[in-house]
């Protein structure tokens, strides 16, 4: 069970959080101008990497803030968490 560092509250148990999937998928600004393929890409396509994954978490039973985490999907190690809007750390960073 993970121990997750909420950038607002500090280290907390996984049970306080819920995962919200891949991060940094910006919603297109002019959606009407997108082709169906482009819209589908935004809506459904995911990188789903085996390894470093940038993902959103919600501190649901805490500050109720969303934040981002850089987590390895094999070892489950979280190498960084950062606030929404902050620059993601590079993947290799420990």
């Amino acid at each position: 069970m993970f121990l997750i560092e909420c950038p607002w509250c500090g280290l907390r148990d996984e049970t306080e959080f819920s995962c919200a999937g891949e991060a940094h998928i910006a919603r297109p600004l002019e959606t009407e101008k997108l082709s169906d393929e482009e819209w589908a890409d935004y809506l459904f396509m995911r990188s789903n990497p085996k390894g470093a994954h940038r993902e959103q978490w919600l501190h649901a039973a805490g500050c109720r803030r969303y934040f981002n985490a850089l987590r390895d999907t094999v070892t489950y190690k979280i190498s960084a968490t950062y606030k929404i809007g902050e620059t993601p750390p590079s993947e290799g960073k420990k």
Partner: peptide
Amino acid sequence: DGYNGYGQRGSFP
């Protein structure tokens, strides 16, 4: 489990 994972293990809860 709610998160992506290739570890063939999930969380205890």
